[in-house]
Design a protein around this nucleic acid. Sequence first.
DNA 1: CCTTGTGGGATTGTTCAACGATCCCTTAGC
DNA 2: GCTAAGGGATCGTTGAACAATCCCACAAGG
Lengths: 247, 247
Amino acid sequence: MAGGVAKNDRRRLAEVSGLASDRALLGRASTAERVADILRDRITEGFFPPGARLSEESIGGALGVSRNTLREAFRLLTHERLLEHRLNRGVFVRVVTVEDLDDIFRVRMIVESAALRGLGQGPYAPEAGEGIEAIDAAVQAGEEAAAARAWADLSTANLRFHQAIVALVGSPRTDELMRGVLAELRLVFHVMDDPQRFYAPYLVRNRQIADTLLAGDAAAAERLLLAYLEDSRGQLSGAYAQRIKEG
Amino acid sequence: MAGGVAKNDRRRLAEVSGLASDRALLGRASTAERVADILRDRITEGFFPPGARLSEESIGGALGVSRNTLREAFRLLTHERLLEHRLNRGVFVRVVTVEDLDDIFRVRMIVESAALRGLGQGPYAPEAGEGIEAIDAAVQAGEEAAAARAWADLSTANLRFHQAIVALVGSPRTDELMRGVLAELRLVFHVMDDPQRFYAPYLVRNRQIADTLLAGDAAAAERLLLAYLEDSRGQLSGAYAQRIKEG
DNA sequence: CCTTGTGGGATTGTTCAACGATCCCTTAGC
DNA sequence: GCTAAGGGATCGTTGAACAATCCCACAAGG
């Protein structure tokens, strides 16, 4: 940091540099949270599959943290619905039920359609052009990933597309709700054999929605999105129910 | 338990007896959760006002639980947004900002209007008549509380009214979202001098909305509700901002 | 064969004491 | 008046300990 600058100048400097995103890596340094970050990554990438039991002793030993600290991390992830805590039995990677899956889509329909309707748009909402730009960028990233057959990138691009839609609302609580719901959805995909299959057909529909938004017809985009979600829910729910029944 | 009944019979017996609600009192007995229940009551009743610091040592000593257990309870309440955790500084009863208040109403508008629009109604949704009946009952309870000048009852009746509206969706996640948001709203009222003032004028509008629903015109009810929320937001937000500025 | 007890072994639930790390406030210095 | 160093309080994390609970296997009884 520069030596003799005044307080206000220094603060402005930090803002301009766009370091706000990096602060998360510094200030938020609690060990339990860092452990939770690690475990969250492992879960969402499928290393710990749904239903797997996370033993306090083995995980704690492997990560070199005490049981108390590990339990705090478990508690964090339990509240994110990624882990499930059964009393006196330990924590398990959550197994999403078919009812949960339906509920997830119900929430998505409510939130995403509200976002396109521009309901309750708040002061944090991005400029209209800026927000739609982010949506378009997510679609484009998906198209590039599909062309390169980078399926993992395609799935993250798809999630980002829907997150960008919700971001139109400019509501921290809504953003967090959506983040949690999409994280749950990842658990579902880890149970399926062939997750990519579910993303690819919807890429063209993402494009259509983004173009409709760019054209300024939000009402039409909302209708397309709701149809999209209903189709997606039906297909995913059916396949998931069958997959659950099998094993 | 009965001696020689077969497994299936016993299960049916338990279901019929309606003991499912009591199980919560038995199974969910973790010390941390019980501590959290106690603290949650104290916070929502205003014993711990917003901004108050909850020392690990003093609270833990008073309740006779160890610091580790207490910290788990703190984390539970932090996730409910009732407490705020600042690293190395302890936990504080959350002070809702004016921006938070606006965001809370933004979420409410999205969720409550979606509920009346019947969007994404799921399998847990109550029968149409049953759900509206609960809404009507909440309004009625509010009217009786107002007549008896039981202001505390009036406020809970009002919250129950909105919760009943959201319950129309039949979505566990949406219900939980609403519960959290309304709990946050309670924190706001504890900062105000005269909370009742904000509920009373809206009682007649609750009645109007319930009657419109009973008449079967959900679209009109949605418009009324959105206007209600917008008015409520404006009034509450203004008064709260001033109250915060004062002290 | 099915159900009902009864152990043992493993894991979690909870508490405690201790030490290092961090923050806030005060004091000293320029 | 502002910056820098020090002290005290509190939090963060650990390791160990013991009780409570669950799971599994095995034996006893109908």
